[in-house]
């Protein structure tokens, strides 16, 4: 800070305009670094995935109902069960996490007294720091038996288990971003609503939450990104049977867990190896589409709001 206040030094060995340019260049590099990394990852995925389709028909890959690359009889590469599993677990997690997340955020920003907030907020943030392997373990030894008992089934390693665990993991993201969004709603909105005779409840539900919708959607999308890419928890808690999922009370096997299970021991440069990268590419494209949709939606919303 101090150097900004001081008058220009005459002894500077480098001209100010050059300095300016260098700094500009440095920040430019920083700015495009993540773009370069992204492009690099995409190129790598694409190049490593393409050889898979020399031996696997792309239609049987995208629409096949069986995945068994280490078969005793005949290798098959069909990703539909894994896509369905991934969507089931992710959507299940959102159905649980979004209402709870918005509720918690509204409570924290508008209802809770400062003292309660001081305690609850850090606790929510600590929740984000629990390693996924620990959550997965709780899914096996704690949540699984509870689900089995509640639904009167033999075991609790299923999509519901995964959804609940992922919801827990997505909650901190959803809560903190939604709370920020609610806090950023101009006080004038709230005052106006209250002045018109609305109750506090009506103000939160009918004024503040709609006004903060763009932030809430962003929170939901980030939570969804967290859920769709999570690996260890679903690997441990969902049973991982490769068959087509039958219900939320049956085992599922997501794209991420398949990659994690099989990449460890696959022989390099085989069709199986390339097919796993093709799975990674599918996952990448999925998350890309989700981000794109949310982005488009957010822009639309901002325009309407203006």
């Amino acid at each position: 800070m101090q150097s900004l206040v001081l008058p220009k030094r005459k002894s500077s060995w480098i001209s100010n305009s050059l300095k300016e340019k260098l700094i500009h260049g440095f920040f430019f590099l920083n700015g495009i670094l993540s773009v370069l990394v992204l492009l690099g990852i995409f190129a790598l995925l694409l190049l490593t995935a393409i050889p898979a389709f020399r031996e696997v028909n792309i239609f049987s890959f995208l629409f096949g109902l069986d995945w068994n690359p280490t078969s005793y009889v005949k290798e098959v590469y069909g990703i539909v069960p894994m896509l369905v599993s991934t969507f089931m677990v992710t959507l299940g997690a959102l159905v649980i996490a979004v209402p709870i997340g918005i509720g918690t955020a509204a409570y924290l920003s508008d209802v809770a007294n400062p003292r309660v907030r001081e305690i609850v907020k850090p606790v929510v943030e600590i929740l984000a720091g629990i390693p996924s392997v620990v959550i997965g373990f709780l899914g096996i030894v704690l949540l699984g038996p509870i689900i089995a008992k509640v639904f009167n089934i033999h075991n609790g390693l299923n999509a519901l288990n995964g959804s609940i665990l992922l919801a827990v993991m997505a909650l901190p993201t959803i809560i903190s971003i939604t709370e920020d969004a609610l806090k950023n709603v101009p006080v004038s909105y709230e005052s106006a609503s209250l002045a018109l005779g609305a109750t506090k409840w009506q103000t939160v539900i009918k004024v503040k939450i709609p006004a903060a919708l763009s932030g809430i959607i962003a929170a939901t999308m980030l939570g969804m990104g967290r859920a769709i890419g999570e690996t260890m928890t679903v690997l441990m808690a969902t049973g991982c049977a490769p068959a087509m999922p039958e219900s939320f009370l049956g085992p599922v096997r997501t794209l991420t867990s398949s990659i994690a299970i099989e990449l460890g021991e696959v022989a390099y440069n085989t069709t199986h190896y390339y097919a796993l990268f093709a799975l990674g590419l599918v996952l990448f494209i999925l998350t890309f589409i989700i981000n794109l949709i949310s982005d488009i939606y957010l822009h639309k919303f901002e325009k309407v709001n203006r």
Partner: peptide, 29 residues
């Protein structure tokens, strides 16, 4: 033992200890 493929419905567990833990809780396992 199988001399064929595993059922696609078999749960794929992450290690010996997890199989033991699952069987202890699952009467049908």
């Amino acid at each position: 033992v199988l001399k064929g493929d595993y059922s696609q419905k078999m749960n794929r567990m992450n290690g010996n200890a997890q199989i033991v833990a699952a069987i202890k809780q699952d009467k049908s396992g």
